[in-house]
Computed example of a mutant assay.
Amino acid sequence: MAEEFIGAGWAFPLRTDATGSIALVQGDRELVESIHLILATAPGERPMRPEFGCAIHDLAFAPADAATAGRIAYEVRVALERWEPRVTLQDVVVNFDEVDNGRLLIEILYSVRGTNDPRNLVFPFYMIPSEETAELPAQDGER
């Protein structure tokens, strides 16, 4: 039943299969690729559907702090509730992985609608570190 509900769709990134046809994915893989596609698309990026996507890209230059993490969690929740009706979100948690390198991990806890099967997905989000926190290369003779 859940497999019929999820359906099938084009693989992302777009590619061909062994027969030369457009590669398709189905089941769990379809949901994972759909969530990745939603989060990786900035609103305004698609000409025929400019509102599609997730506004986390507006935060690429924001400071890596708790306020930004909360805003990222909010934007992910809003985007997935709007664009992925096949899942029920349980929680969105943003963890600081490598703050100095600008990497945050977005953990999405969800279940497929109509099932009690909990799932999770971790989506890496890269921010541009500020100049004050970025390490400068060592000059000759410095360590």
Rank of each mutant, 00 (worst) to 15 (best):
P43L: 14
D91W: 09
A62N: 07
P50Y: 05
R113I: 14
E135D: 05
V122L: 03
E132L: 13
F96A: 15
G141Q: 10
E132M: 11
T88A: 15
Q90C: 01
I108Q: 01
A8I: 05
E107Y: 06
M48R: 04
E98M: 14
F96T: 15
E98Y: 15
F125M: 08
F96V: 15
R29F: 03
R82F: 02
F125Y: 10
Q139P: 11
V32C: 01
D97T: 15
A42Q: 13
V94F: 03
N101K: 13
G20I: 08
I22G: 10
S21N: 14
G102C: 06
V87W: 07
R46M: 10
I6V: 11
S130P: 12
A2S: 13
D91Q: 14
E51K: 08
A79E: 02
V93R: 09
R77G: 00
F96W: 15
I108L: 06
A11C: 00
A11V: 00
T19F: 09
V112T: 08
P43E: 12
A11S: 02
L14F: 02
L105N: 10
L24S: 09
L121Q: 04
V25D: 09
R71I: 08
E4L: 12
L109P: 03
D65H: 03
F61G: 07
S130E: 04
R71H: 11
G70W: 00
E142I: 07
M48G: 03
R86G: 00
E75V: 00
E4A: 13
E132K: 14
T133A: 07
R77Q: 04
Q139D: 10
A2N: 12
R49T: 11
S130F: 05
D117E: 04
G44N: 06
E75S: 00
L31S: 06
Q139W: 13
H36I: 10
E4V: 09
W83M: 09
L80R: 06
F52Y: 13
V25A: 07
D58Y: 01
I128C: 14
R143V: 04
R29A: 08
R77C: 03
I106M: 13
L39V: 11
W10I: 01
E33Y: 02
